[in-house]
Simulated scan of single mutants.
Amino acid sequence: MRAPSLLFVFLSFMATLFFSCASKMQLSDLEQQVKEEFDQGDGTFAMAFMDLTTGDQLLINARESFHAASTMKTPVLIELYKQSEAGKFSLEDSILVKNEFYSIVDSSLYSLNVGDDSESGLYDVVGSKRTVADLAYDMIIVSSNLATNLVIDLVDARKVTQTMRDLGAPDIQVLRGVEDIKAYELGMSNSTTAYDLMAIYEKLGRGEVVSPEASEAMIDILLDQKFNDIIPAHLPEAVKVAHKTGSITGVHHDSGIVMLPDGRKYVLVLLSKELGDFAAGTELLAGVSKMVYDYVK
């Protein structure tokens, strides 16, 4: 049998290369897919994506303001680690568990309702002490509102917002703790954008928040997240997601760092509001997360 000519080998190689490149999804294809999905949903949606390896970035409604819900607990966690590293307290220090907090409107006292919290065990130990580290963990992985308010009392919401500015997040506003009804009725709520959450998770993923060691410690906490019905929902088990969710009536968010088995990482933020069907909106966002994963993979 005669050996193939060099021209034939070259043409075969070029054809393989062409079809390989042509078959790879482009960022513009992903953008079109996501926009079509958002257009079909009953609500308002936003997305911010950044591939930490290639630098690819996709922003859709990324500057739209949303009620932060519990996504604000990641900024609070960052401020906690910042102040701890500065020596203001140790994460192993113990603080009193209480259920009395001051409204930012008029300093009147209010308490949290255990029935509105995603975690109830902490209410059983009011009057005793828990370590700062334990409260931070519960604030993130089970989204404990009581733990969150205790941590915010410790670090000061205004300092959380200032640290967000320092990290390149111009629009995140952490004004108060959870269930400050007087503030809520006056429109004084914590808010965020998809862009801002992407900015802080990018720095976290690069080890640039507080210190490489602190960034790694915070990621370890976020990896233990118990609410996994958006970003990780349709991803392979081998893919790890360090993330924080948030939900209130008509609102469902997820934000974090997706870690592939081969070491590549990307940041994904998915926000929603005015959801006509909460379950359908959640599934829509989970589907978008899978689209992003397929693009990166």
Rank of each mutant, 00 (worst) to 15 (best):
1 M>W: 05
5 S>G: 15
7 L>F: 10
9 V>Y: 11
14 M>I: 02
15 A>H: 02
15 A>V: 08
17 L>H: 01
19 F>H: 05
23 S>N: 12
24 K>F: 15
25 M>Q: 15
26 Q>E: 15
29 D>I: 13
30 L>W: 02
31 E>M: 04
32 Q>E: 15
33 Q>G: 07
33 Q>D: 13
34 V>H: 06
35 K>L: 09
37 E>G: 07
38 F>L: 04
39 D>I: 08
40 Q>D: 09
41 G>N: 02
42 D>V: 01
44 T>K: 14
44 T>M: 07
45 F>G: 00
46 A>Q: 02
46 A>F: 09
49 F>Q: 10
50 M>P: 00
55 G>F: 03
57 Q>M: 13
58 L>W: 00
69 A>L: 04
70 S>Y: 05
72 M>H: 09
77 L>N: 04
79 E>D: 14
81 Y>R: 10
82 K>M: 08
83 Q>M: 11
89 F>W: 07
90 S>V: 02
91 L>P: 00
92 E>L: 12
99 N>Q: 05
100 E>P: 00
100 E>M: 07
101 F>V: 02
106 D>Y: 05
109 L>K: 13
109 L>E: 10
111 S>R: 11
112 L>H: 00
115 G>S: 11
115 G>M: 09
115 G>R: 11
119 E>A: 13
120 S>I: 07
122 L>G: 10
122 L>A: 07
123 Y>N: 10
125 V>W: 07
125 V>A: 04
127 G>R: 09
129 K>N: 15
129 K>H: 14
135 L>R: 03
136 A>V: 04
138 D>E: 13
144 S>W: 00
146 L>H: 03
147 A>M: 04
147 A>T: 10
147 A>F: 03
148 T>I: 02
148 T>G: 09
148 T>P: 14
150 L>R: 03
150 L>G: 04
150 L>N: 05
150 L>A: 02
152 I>E: 06
152 I>M: 04
155 V>M: 03
159 K>Q: 15
162 Q>S: 14
164 M>A: 03
164 M>S: 07
165 R>V: 02
168 G>W: 00
168 G>F: 00
172 I>C: 06
173 Q>S: 12
174 V>G: 03
176 R>A: 04
182 K>I: 00
183 A>Q: 06
185 E>H: 05
186 L>T: 03
188 M>N: 13
188 M>G: 02
194 A>Y: 12
195 Y>Q: 13
196 D>E: 02
197 L>A: 04
198 M>P: 00
201 Y>I: 01
202 E>N: 14
202 E>G: 01
209 V>L: 06
212 P>E: 01
213 E>M: 08
215 S>A: 13
217 A>V: 01
224 D>L: 12
225 Q>Y: 05
225 Q>R: 01
226 K>R: 15
228 N>P: 12
230 I>M: 10
232 P>C: 08
232 P>Y: 06
245 T>F: 14
248 I>T: 09
250 G>N: 10
250 G>A: 13
251 V>Y: 14
256 G>C: 06
256 G>I: 07
261 P>L: 03
269 V>G: 07
273 K>M: 11
274 E>R: 15
276 G>Q: 11
276 G>Y: 10
279 A>T: 12
281 G>V: 03
286 A>V: 03
288 V>G: 10
290 K>G: 06
293 Y>S: 09
294 D>L: 13
296 V>P: 04
296 V>S: 06
297 K>C: 08
